[in-house]
């Protein structure tokens, strides 16, 4: 197994030059704290029956915050059900993310100017959308790029092959970011593909593949920043495989005790992506308990405010479920809307 690229080791020591200054790292650390606060809150809310199924991302914060950090607002993000942190980091409001998880279509209504697609709940379909987004930007000559996040399981879908192939053939400005978290529900990574690494799959499409330590914020940032630069400058796509671990169950309905997921959790806890950055900041005089308490308070405020706003919104009414199928509802939809009200379809 080739060694993944690491910049910051588990003790918070630099193995190579940092691609970021300390202030930026502090900001990204704060983002990871906010993300984790949301993740814990959402899991708790699901247990209380306030959310539908929820897919935790604990352990994957460095992947999600680090990969989005090199993007500009005009760039695109197409991600999955497990990528709330990445979506938020690119401008998708927490209130939308909470709303989506309560089971409300308005969660998908990103504000104008936020170039983030609603999360892909089907595995794999969105990678080829990133290809289309990037292709359009290329044809328009804007210089914008697309980043798509997906799991190791998603690389087994035919859509992965088609997306990678298009990206290679048309030299498209797209970055494929695979969060290899070890599992696809109960399937371990080594049963998902016989390839030694997912990064190596890029070769088959003429797309460079890069293996990176997914719990290292700085390595994730550096690898993605290089891929984004290449894409923006006409160099085409990159496939990044970030090695990480899904610290929780697949979703709140899953029981990971049934399939040997739990044994490695302790080992991965030692590699916690937040803890690593915290140690680094502390070594450099940029972290103390007061500062941490301050950002945690701030994180709770942000998340609680989003939850309150989402839960205050009344659910869609019966009438409203008919209103977003087409630009104008069809005759049949109008008739069905009347039937749903208990009226007659025709006068």
């Amino acid at each position: 197994m080739p060694e993944p690229r690491t910049i910051l080791n588990e003790n918070g020591e630099l193995l190579a030059d940092s691609p970021l200054d300390l202030e930026t790292i502090q900001n990204l650390y704060e983002s990871m704290v906010i993300a984790r606060t949301y993740d814990h809150k959402a899991s708790a809310m699901q247990r209380q029956g306030r959310l539908a199924t929820y897919a935790q991302f604990e352990g994957q914060e460095a992947c999600q915050i680090g990969s989005v950090a090199p993007l500009e607002p005009r760039d695109w993000v197409a991600a999955t059900y497990r990528d709330a942190a990445a979506m938020w980091a690119h401008g998708y409001p927490w209130v939308n993310l909470v709303l989506g998880r309560t089971g409300d279509e308005r969660g998908g209504q990103a504000p104008e100017g936020v170039n983030v697609l609603p999360p892909s709940i089907t595995v794999g379909g969105h990678m080829i959308h990133a290809v289309g987004l990037a292709w359009a930007e290329q044809l328009k000559g804007t210089g914008a790029v697309a980043l798509t996040l997906f799991g190791d399981g998603a690389t087994s879908e035919g859509d992965f092959h088609e997306a990678m192939n298009f990206a290679g053939v048309y030299t498209l400005p797209v970055v494929f970011f695979c969060q290899n978290n070890g599992w696809a529900i109960s399937m371990p990574r080594d049963r998902q593909t016989a390839a030694e690494t997912i990064a190596s799959k890029g070769a088959g499409y003429g797309v460079p593949g890069v293996l990176v330590d997914g719990n290292d914020l700085l390595a994730v940032f550096a690898a993605t920043a290089e891929a984004v630069d290449r894409a923006r400058n006409g160099g085409g796509a990159t496939l990044i495989e970030a090695l990480t671990y899904r610290m929780g169950p697949h979703t709140t309905t899953d029981d990971p005790g049934r399939y040997g997921h739990t044994a490695a959790v302790g080992m991965w806890a030692e590699r916690d992506p937040l803890e690593r950055v915290r140690r680094y900041l502390e070594r450099n005089g940029r972290w103390d308990a007061d500062w941490e308490a301050g950002i945690e308070d701030h994180a709770h405020e942000i998340v609680e405010a989003a939850v309150a706003e989402a839960e205050a919104l009344p659910p869609l009414s019966s009438d409203e479920i008919f209103e977003a199928m087409f630009a104008e509802p069809t005759t049949q939809l109008r008739e069905q809307q009347r039937l749903a009200r208990g009226e007659r379809a025709h006068d």
Binding site: A52, T102, G103, D104, L316, S317, S318, T330, L333, Q336
Partner: peptide, 15 residues
């Protein structure tokens, strides 16, 4: 059911 994408949890009962 109606000719709409089946609504999510909060409005599913309308479908």
């Amino acid at each position: 059911g109606w000719d709409v994408v089946i609504p999510l949890r909060r409005a599913e009962k309308h479908y």
